[in-house]
């Protein structure tokens, strides 16, 4: 028996918004410690890694490890039926071929349940090595989304260049060039407004706008985003999900000019 009850059901709705453009389907690996999802987009250029710890749920039971293959467009349709203040429970029997979503309104006057068929997915799991990154940049997530959106008008790629002075985002194309420089913030009233750069060595890498923009669909999950870069390895874009866990996106850098 698997059962996970999330009082802040809106978080699950936001997680769905954050992954559904990138992935058509994904396996939710449910274990005693919580729920994990790892899946690459169709072109294998980017990867989503979602971690929801059991401690984040107000009720969590997982008697046996369970892999639930879900069609994300179907799951998204179902989660759209939940109100933002609904409590959401996911449950499944061992070896079941369906999962049930139960939505409870805060005062319990409306309770809905939706059963969805599971699909068998033969997904490749990748081993992601522990990496000490040369540059770790923290910035407001809305600022990052704005930069990706603005620079996408200029070209297909964004160059992210991190030095001890700060971080520079650049794009170039037919209409011209664009550069956005962010300096580390000295003092801020709110920690979530800070720009922080932890640099061991300067790094400059180029990434496809299309994917960066899809990652920024996670913006509502967290006020801050963390970008980790090292020369010639995939970028990590991480959004914390309150006290529950995180969503990380990996993106292979573009090579060449």
């Amino acid at each position: 028996m698997f059962e996970a009850r999330l009082v802040q059901g809106a978080l699950l709705k936001k997680v769905m918004e954050a992954i559904k453009e990138l992935l058509n389907e994904a396996s939710f690996d449910c274990a005693h410690s919580g729920i994990l999802l790892q899946a690459m987009d169709n072109s294998h250029v980017s990867l989503v890694s979602l971690n929801l710890r059991r401690e984040g749920f107000d009720k969590y039971r997982c008697d046996r490890n369970l892999v639930m293959g879900m069609n994300l467009s179907s799951m998204s349709k179902i989660l759209k039926c939940a109100s933002n203040d609904d409590i959401i429970t996911m449950k499944a029997q061992d070896n079941a071929d369906t999962v049930t979503f139960v939505f409870e309104s805060p005062k319990q006057e409306k309770i809905s349940d939706y059963e969805m068929k599971l699909t068998n997915l033969d997904q490749d799991h990748l081993g992601i090595p522990e990496t000490e990154y040369s540059c770790v940049i923290k910035l407001p997530s809305a600022e990052f989304a704005r930069i990706c959106r603005d620079l996408s008008q200029f070209g297909e790629s964004i160059v992210i260049s991190c030095t001890k002075e700060g971080v520079k985002f650049s794009a170039a194309g037919d209409i011209g060039t664009a550069n956005i420089k962010l300096a580390q913030t000295a003092t801020v009233d709110k920690e979530e407004d800070a720009v922080m750069v932890d640099m061991q060595e300067p790094v400059t890498l180029t990434f496809a706008c299309k994917y960066l923009n899809m990652f920024t669909k996670a913006t509502p999950l967290s006020p801050q985003v963390c970008l980790s870069m090292s020369p010639d390895v995939p970028l990590v874009v991480e959004y914390k999900i309150e006290d529950i866990g995180h969503i990380r996106y990996y993106l292979a850098p573009r090579i060449g000019d």
């Binding site: 072109s43 799991h125 990748l126 081993g127 790629s157 496809a208 292979a252 090579i255 060449g256 000019d257």
Partner: peptide
């Protein structure tokens, strides 16, 4: 022109 490698070039299948 730039090329776009896949993640399989960096991470190995488990």
């Amino acid at each position: 022109a730039s090329t776009q490698p896949t993640l399989n070039d960096y991470f190995k299948s488990k």
